[in-house]
């Protein structure tokens, strides 16, 4: 299990790095799908199979397909790729990388040193909570999705 964790984590980090370095939108999307699938493997190794499946189905499946549809609709071709290269000279990376390093070192200094005994928290426990104490949160999530649906329809409508 810990091998799965480290392998998945390494793949996730490398493919995420490629996502932010890519100039081609479709290649970046494919790397993002790879990164999300690797995070799903990490979830599985942490003993959360239900969440791992949802990550693969909803994140890497549905949301990324939504991205892909929009990218194909916009038809960002060769010209955008050259523009992208012109937008990203090496010096623009300097300040964001420094800021992110500061953030990362701040986070690293606050970690508690502990270890996880991997216990599987399966579908039963999660769905028991979802239909028990968290039923209101499920309702609110459905409201949120409805609001997202309506606003996406309204915003993308051509006039």
């Amino acid at each position: 299990m810990s091998f799965l964790f480290y392998a998945g984590g390494a793949v996730a980090l490398i493919s995420t790095l490629f996502v932010i370095l890519q100039t081609n939108v479709v290649h970046a999307l494919i790397y993002l799908v790879l990164s999300l699938l690797a995070v799903a493997v990490v979830f599985f190794s942490l003993g959360a199979p239900f969440v791992a499946l949802l990550e693969a189905i909803v994140y890497a499946g549905a949301i990324m397909v939504l991205f892909l549809f929009v990218v194909m609709m916009l038809n960002l071709g060769q010209t955008t790729r050259e523009q992208e290269k012109a937008w990203l000279p090496p010096r623009v990376w300097l300040i964001p990388v420094v800021l992110a390093t500061v953030l990362l070192s701040g986070l690293l200094s606050s970690f508690p040193a502990n270890s996880i005994e991997v216990t599987e928290v399966g579908v039963m426990e999660v769905s028991g909570l979802l239909f028990g104490p968290y039923v209101l949160a499920v309702e609110l999530a459905s409201f949120l999705l409805l609001a997202g649906l309506i606003s996406a329809y309204h915003l993308a409508k051509s006039r």
Binding site: M1, L13, L17, V19, I20, P96, L99, E117, E120
Partner: peptide
């Protein structure tokens, strides 16, 4: 079942978050 250090999980999440931050601040 074996153990995974807690801070390694947090480290992975923080590194992913920092990479996302770099992407948000760099890209046009």
């Amino acid at each position: 079942m074996d153990t995974i250090p807690f801070e390694h999980g947090l480290l992975l999440a923080s590194a992913l978050f920092a990479l996302g931050l770099v992407g948000v601040t760099t890209r046009r």
